[in-house]
Design a protein around this nucleic acid. Sequence first.
DNA 1: GCTTGACCTAGAGTCAACTCTAGATCCTAG
DNA 2: CTAGGATCTAGAGTTGACTCTAGGTCAAGC
Lengths: 167, 167
Amino acid sequence: MAEVTTNLSIGQVAERTGLSVHALRFYEHEGLFVNPVQRGPGGRRVYSQDDVDWLTVCIILRASGMPLPALRRYADLVRQGAGNEEERLTLMREHQAHVTTQIGKLAECLDLIRFKVGVYEDLLGPDSGGDRQCHAASPSANDEDANNIGLINGPRGPVTPDPALSP
Amino acid sequence: MAEVTTNLSIGQVAERTGLSVHALRFYEHEGLFVNPVQRGPGGRRVYSQDDVDWLTVCIILRASGMPLPALRRYADLVRQGAGNEEERLTLMREHQAHVTTQIGKLAECLDLIRFKVGVYEDLLGPDSGGDRQCHAASPSANDEDANNIGLINGPRGPVTPDPALSP
DNA sequence: GCTTGACCTAGAGTCAACTCTAGATCCTAG
DNA sequence: CTAGGATCTAGAGTTGACTCTAGGTCAAGC
């Protein structure tokens, strides 16, 4: 095997993960690392390639809406080592279900959004490529603007949104 | 046409939209309604079916990650009436793009998650339906737990998460 | 006459996940 | 020797979208 010890500074890790140095310290503080982050001379953090790989997993799980407590739980399980694979599987399956329904919900929302876009496109003429200046509002758009729920089916309960991803 | 004026109390609207009465007052305060919410005797809010329909649209847009300022902007445009359909179209198209990429990102994340689930399923035996008790960790799972980034392609920049949906 | 429950306003509090600040340390380059 | 830049710790501040509290009004029922 080649180099396993890459030895990166916090700044370098920030650069290649896209997390801020603040976030990296914060994640460490929150116990999200599987192995304690090593320290070099002067108490500075030294990250290995494994750390970066793990962070990449964390970032993906976060990006798919896994909250920090769940991520910490997962890190705990991995840290404990073999023997708790069932629990890890459960955790991952739950998250999978979660992401799957999330995608489903977004797809549903997209139906309404597409419909709205369609309405406005029709209204502005069939060739409104982005910057048309004409606005001949013959068929009312405002009539439409609240009466488009034919899309949304049946007895609708609360649209429960969900954890998510912030920029 | 049948009854257009449904005249619902805030509690009834909360019940059928899934929003809390607090959220309804908050939305009003934030200028998210197209028409000012009417008041009945004693200054109590009286909602029409149109209000509820509009709220349904709002809920769907929120559930797909549209922030309140954008929603307010949209409400403003609709309130102003005909003549600004282009801007509405732009707004909706932007949101559409946004939701579409969001779904794409989640689908990518789902790849990793499925992979992880697969790893743990294999590890626990091919028939781990949910409650298997055996854990013979012959092939290490921990080796895997950070070295699974073969899925994630190329020179990966920051995984930018995104607005979202909270419960 | 009194309690109960739904509603009102204004404003404070919460939560997650960071982000930023202050003040100190340490290493390198000029 | 000194200035600059990256890092350190501890802790305060931010943001978005609500949620909750306090204190008050009002109509119906007992």
